[in-house]
Amino acid sequence: MMRAALAVLLVLLLGSAARAERLIVSVSNHRVTVTPNYSGEELVLFGSVEKDASTPADRKTYDLVVTVMGPRAEMVTRRKERTFGIWINTDYRQFLEVPSYLALFANRPFDVITSPEIARRQQIGLNNVLLTQRVSGDYADVVPNDVFRSAFIRLRTQRGLYREDPSAVTFLTPTLFRTGIPLPAEVPIGTYEVEIKLFADGAFIGKTETAFEIVKVGFEQFVATTARQNGLIYGLVTAAMALMTGWMASIVFRKD
């Protein structure tokens, strides 16, 4: 009995020894408001690696991978093919619950930080992030070089909504770090999860999470919400607006 309790204690101690470092992080703004003239901005994430007594003394340098994931959405990627001389959407793939915004930042290239196997398990790099597709009734991610998957990532990257930058994280001191999170103008609204993963000598040694929220404010957002939630009223108001404009024009430009 005594021996069993000791064993449990030992496991607990070892367990905490394996997670010797603590990560303390914060983002510069937990609530980003997007106004009508918003043209993109950059959030700053900063934090430090706290060592404790159980940290191996020879462990000096750390590697960090920061993953930012926007609200999840369902998306369809379609491919055009030449049919009867014209280009038509023929084949398509449905992506389920994929992040609408995805950014991966690190202080060094991903393949230098860790082994390919750990990178795959920890979803390090755009090629390793899980993007579930519906493949004929089945749900699965596919190989990274799948045409639909790579086209999907390429198109999202072009819009600035997916990105990976292995030099975005900078260590100010061996334990103090910061990184910028660029948010483009057409950033989707919702809750963003930030995951910070710590590596040392190629091994994954711990992670922490934080989050921020993007809200749109102002007249435009009011219009967008009304259009989606009260379609009929929105349509009636737009129709009335058209009539008013037409009527005003006929008064202003009336030839008497």
Binding site: P71, E74, V76, R156, T191
Partner: peptide, 11 residues
């Protein structure tokens, strides 16, 4: 040749 259409954001 590829296009993406978003089918709505959940959350």
């Amino acid at each position: 040749l590829f296009t993406i259409r978003e089918l709505g954001v959940n959350g």
